[in-house]
Design a protein around this nucleic acid. Structure first.
Length: 497
RNA sequence: GGUCCAGUAACUCAGUGGUAGAGUAUCUGCCUUUUAAGCAGAGAGUCGACGGUUCAAGUCCGUCCUGGAUCACCA
């Protein structure tokens, strides 16, 4: 294979380097400055004749007879190296000639400007820190009118996801997305911590799964010889913690759902869930709105985002609307008054699939999802969900058919889900048993009855509000990426060849 | 899962049924301030896989694999 020819040549270079008595993978490196530091104050550096020892990856080589140029990059920046045989000496220059783009090197020297005015490091010594034996894909860049034009960009989507390290290395703007993701998650923690929440970790391996409608992954514990599920949500465990006396808890972690994958779904994804005793739906609405606005304004620094072809404005007061009103607006049907037969007929007419055992509320939700959800572009709290599709939410005060629940919809997609949490143990048991009946009818995403959770409720749980936000989708919005794979470092891919 | 698009050198891509191409990268030579360095030369391919049609297939047909877009379902 041609690949082996490249590698074979590099291995021969390795041997030549070793023959010079040089260890191509030394233990020691001794960096005195990061590249950003030498870049920070060029004039001062020149005057002071400071000696810099930089370390990083050689990203370009331009050899030219008895001199040469290279570019070295660390996580703070990139600078040009000027290397000459006269200043390095015969032996060290011999090593430089054996260096390739992709190698890690340490370069010692002083700052100066080249004839063409580029601020560079005039090297007095080059040390090899790690030899590359597989050539990096070639990406060249030209700066024109202050803008970088990239040639032969590493842009194949499949390769970028499968070889993410190359994507990060060769496409700095993608590295930036993940740095931004980190800042967002960090800001979420600070936001909640400052409101007296504590962060907790609950089991990923569970003998019963719950807290959402989804199919789980199943795994096996050898010593116990039992099958375990990977969690689909953390809800039931966080509620147990509120029973246990914590008043405000949150968890940021991976959930796993054994379902399809597309540009907004990855089998493992990151969720934030938080629960606050003595709060309620209104409290959660305020919390979610304040949190998302804080991230947009203070972390990213803007209110308007382009997302899935829409312009989304996160500023201003977010719309709040009842699901029934939205459905009526879109279809003309007064769903609160309509009979089950009428709704069923409507669904059938529009070829909407009706799962076995669907009651009126489920039908309303089906119509909502088909005709309304994707039309809500600007942030909208959709309230008054049907109770029977909200088995963990309290009934809305004054209307036993509705749940005290909202979903936050932005650009036609769900960003948050929250309710006044159900704390009546007998009601909760009935609701979960209703779910079990749906399950028996073939709904394999319905909740299972968790006796230990019900027992915890029987000991008493304070009234509270809880909410969940899909972090990946939030990062997609805030970094203006339309595919979840762009915000997950190693997205799920089918095994390749 | 349905439909559509794509897969050719390490990277980015041309390729009209008739000898497999370019730029970059790599290798060799020259070059003491270059920067998409330059000049000269060389090597590099299971054209995603398998089957079929044809005198002849990267190209046409079929099946499959992988990715993307879109629709359906889920956050």
């Amino acid at each position: 294979m041609a690949e082996n020819q490249f590698i074979k040549l590099r291995k021969e270079k390795l041997a030549r380097i070793r023959a010079l008595g040089i260890d191509p993978y030394p233990v020691q490196s001794a960096r005195s400055h990061k590249i950003a530091e030498i870049l920070a104050d060029p004039d001062g550096s020149v005057e002071n004749a400071t000696i810099f020892t930089l370390a990083g990856r050689l990203v370009a080589m331009r050899r030219q007879g008895k001199i040469g140029f290279g570019n070295i990059e660390d996580d703070s920046g990139r600078i040009q190296l000027y290397v000459s045989k006269a200043e390095l000496g015969e032996e060290n220059y011999e090593l430089f000639k054996l260096c390739d783009a992709g190698d890690f090197v340490q370069a010692t020297g002083t700052a100066f400007f080249t004839q063409t005015g580029e601020y560079s490091l005039r090297c007095t010594c080059i040390k090899l820190l790690s030899k590359n034996i597989r050539p990096l894909p070639t990406v060249k860049e030209k700066i024109e009118n202050g803008r970088a034009i990239r040639y032969d960009e590493f842009s194949d989507i499949e390769l970028r996801y499968r070889k993410r390290y190359l994507d990060l290395l060769l496409n700095p703007e993608h590295r930036k997305v993940f740095a931004t993701r980190s800042r967002i998650v960090s800001a979420i923690r600070k936001f909640l911590d400052s409101r007296d929440y504590i962060e907790v970790e609950t089991p990923i391996l569970q003998s019963l799964y719950g807290g959402a409608n989804a199919r789980p992954f199943i795994t096996h514990h050898n010593t116990l010889d039992v099958d375990l599920y990977l969690r689909i949500a953390v809800e039931l465990y966080l509620k147990r913690l509120i029973v246990g006396g914590f008043e405000r808890v949150y968890e940021i972690g991976k959930n796993f759902r054994n379902e399809g994958m597309d540009r907004t779904h990855n089998p493992e994804f990151t969720m934030l869930e938080s629960y606050e005793a003595y709060s309620d739906l209104q409290g959660m609405m305020d919390l979610v709105e304040a949190l998302v606005k804080h991230l947009a304004t203070d972390v990213i620094g803007k209110d308007i985002y382009r997302y899935h072809g829409h312009e989304v404005n996160l500023a201003g007061t977010w719309r709040r609307a009842a699901m029934a009103d939205l459905v009526q607006e879109a279809t003309g049907i007064d769903v609160m008054e309509a009979t089950v037969d009428k709704l069923t007929a409507f669904c059938t007419e529009h070829e909407l699939e009706i799962p076995a055992g669907s009651a009126k509320g489920k039908l309303i939700a089906i119509i909502y999802e088909r005709f309304v959800e994707h039309t809500l572009i600007q942030p909208t709290f959709v309230c008054d969900f049907p109770k029977e599709i909200s088995p963990l939410a309290k009934a809305k005060p004054g209307n036993p058919l509705l749940a005290d629940r909202f979903e936050l919809i932005i650009a036609g997609g769900e960003f948050a889900n929250a309710f006044s949490e159900l704390n009546d143990p007998l009601d909760q048991r009935e609701r979960l048993e209703a779910q079990a009946r749906l399950r028996a009818l073939g709904d394999d995403e319905a909740n299972v009855v968790d006796e230990d959770f019900l027992e915890a409720l029987e000991y008493g749980m304070p009234p509270m509000g809880g909410q969940g936000i899909g972090i990946d989708r939030l990062v997609m919005l805030l970094t203006e990426n339309d595919s979840i794979k762009e915000v997950i470092l190693f997205p799920q891919m089918k095994p390749g060849n």
